[in-house]
Amino acid sequence: MAKVIVVTSGKGGVGKTTTSAAFAAGLALRGHKTVVIDFDVGLRNLDLVMGCERRVVFDFINVINGDANLNQALIKDKRHDNLFIFPTSQTRDKNALKREGVERVMEELKQQFEYIICDSPAGIEHGAITALYFADSAIIVTNPEVSSVRDSDRIIGILASKSRRAERNEPAVDVHLLLTRYDPVRVAKGEMLAVDDVKEILSIPLLGVIPESESVLRASNTGTPVVFDEESPAGRAYLDAVARFLGEQREMRFVTPQRRSFFRALFGRV
């Protein structure tokens, strides 16, 4: 049975698209046929982060309006056979995402894919609500910072009241906390909220901690999901999170300051 996962946060700029790209690629690497959908109508960016911006012909809105069929719009990733990208439109029409249309497309996607990752826009407006409406699971992307934590709390409340599962009185959407841009050195100095603090405040289960890492910007510069960078601590942390999502037990890495060897400190990159 296909599973719909929304990647959401309320606040912008915390790493939703990076996470959507990394998580989708991670699931594909684990052998699951996965599609990642951009719900940020008008501000298309997933295509850039996934490195397929020049291959976009038809988009989500075209398919909703019946101007193209699903397979014309889906872009197959060149790095992995299991991975597909479903870009959104650059239209300025805010209401282009009609719920009935989205529902029909989702049902069609469920026939083809094991996992459907929905990359939500920021905010709590129509696009964000539509992105989370069909979700079975949610990944709440949060930075260890007051405004991000507050907005995450808000979006957790919205998931509990406005999702289709909530409306139909079905089992609740299962929510997971993913803490991104984590800096263990600053946490040790008392300058940044610790992972346990955020967990305690939001009281949802922790899926993973992604360390602040130069490799994330390198990955988006080149249009490569960060999990394809085997050297990257962030990439490895995302793969751990994917494994936990699939039910594996893995210890949290990158949550304590790393001791760097003398030579690495002298010559090494992150």
Binding site: V146, D153, A194, I201
Partner: peptide, 14 residues
């Protein structure tokens, strides 16, 4: 620490 202040403020506002 500022992180402790952040945690307390968040708890109250939330």
């Amino acid at each position: 620490t500022s992180a402790q202040v952040a945690k307390e403020r968040l708890k109250i506002v939330l």
